[in-house]
Amino acid sequence: MSGIALSRLAQERKAWRKDHPFGFVAVPTKNPDGTMNLMNWECAIPGKKGTPWEGGLFKLRMLFKDDYPSSPPKCKFEPPLFHPNVYPSGTVCLSILEEDKDWRPAITIKQILLGIQELLNEPNIQDPAQAEAYTIYCQNRVEYEKRVRAQAKKFAPS
């Protein structure tokens, strides 16, 4: 494992614990031996107030490669969400998460999670990743928002 990646992720964890947006979660997972795995984080993004996503808490896994922060983490909703920019596998399609697009090593975990929260309610229809959600979003916004509200209710924190 890269010392650069681990040191950056340790800084990220410290900064997150000191200050993070209300309702968001970002925690490194534990290895079988109980030690912390900084390369694999369990996160959760709350649906934004005043949107059909409100009330939901959407679980996301963030996986970092050894060359982080040169390369972005892979962000994957578990379980996958109904959304035009979420692949059926759950992987998020967002330009700041793509090395050859808008990724920059200075982007923080907090910025990534806030960017994904923004994307939930403002899909990028130029870059669809899920045919069904994309089609319904474009053709029947009322039905799309109904499905999103049902999903938010399903993923409401207990």
Rank of each mutant, 00 (worst) to 15 (best):
P84F: 02
T91M: 10
T51L: 01
Y134E: 06
S95E: 04
K110N: 08
C138M: 11
E118D: 13
M39T: 10
L119M: 10
E42P: 03
V27G: 08
K153I: 15
Y87N: 02
F82W: 10
K30P: 09
E42W: 08
E99K: 11
E12W: 05
P123D: 01
L60H: 05
R104F: 02
C93G: 02
C75H: 03
T29V: 07
K154L: 12
A133M: 01
R104K: 11
T29C: 13
F155P: 02
L63E: 15
F77N: 00
Q126E: 13
M36V: 06
E122S: 11
N121V: 13
L114W: 13
Y144S: 00
V86K: 07
S7L: 10
F155Q: 14
Q139D: 13
V25F: 11
V142N: 15
W53P: 04
L120N: 00
I112D: 05
S158W: 11
N40P: 06
M36E: 05
P84H: 00
N37L: 10
P46S: 07
D127K: 00
L63D: 14
G55P: 09
A44W: 08
I107E: 11
P46D: 05
A129M: 01
Y87M: 08
I107M: 13
Q11R: 13
W103N: 01
E132I: 06
E122H: 10
E143N: 12
K48M: 10
A26V: 02
K154A: 12
A26E: 02
K65L: 14
P157K: 15
N121L: 05
Y144W: 06
Q11F: 08
L38G: 02
R61N: 14
P69M: 01
D66N: 10
P46N: 07
E98N: 15
K48P: 15
L63F: 13
K101D: 14
W53T: 01
A5D: 05
F82E: 04
C43R: 00
Q117E: 09
E122A: 12
Q139E: 13
M36K: 07
P46C: 10
V27L: 13
L60C: 14
K110P: 09
R147A: 10
W41C: 00
K65I: 14
C138E: 15
R8D: 09
A10M: 14
K14Y: 06
A106R: 00
D102P: 02
N140W: 01
L60E: 03
M36S: 04
N85L: 00
S71K: 12
D127I: 00
N140K: 07
P157M: 07
K154T: 11
Q126N: 11
D66L: 12
E99N: 09
N37S: 14
K48I: 07
A150Q: 15
Q11W: 11
K48A: 11
M1Y: 07
I136F: 13
A106C: 10
F64M: 15
W103E: 00
Q139S: 07
Y134D: 05
R141M: 15
V86M: 12
N37C: 15
R8A: 10
D100L: 12
R8H: 08
V142Y: 14
Q139Y: 14
F64H: 03
L120G: 03
A156Y: 08
K154E: 11
P21G: 04
S2N: 08
S158T: 13
I4F: 08
W53V: 05
K74C: 15
G3R: 06
T35W: 03
I112A: 09
K14W: 07
R13W: 01
A10N: 14
K146P: 00
L6V: 11
F155E: 02
F82R: 00
I125E: 06
K146A: 14
C138W: 08
P32I: 13
C75V: 15
R147V: 11
P84C: 09
A10Y: 01
Y87E: 03
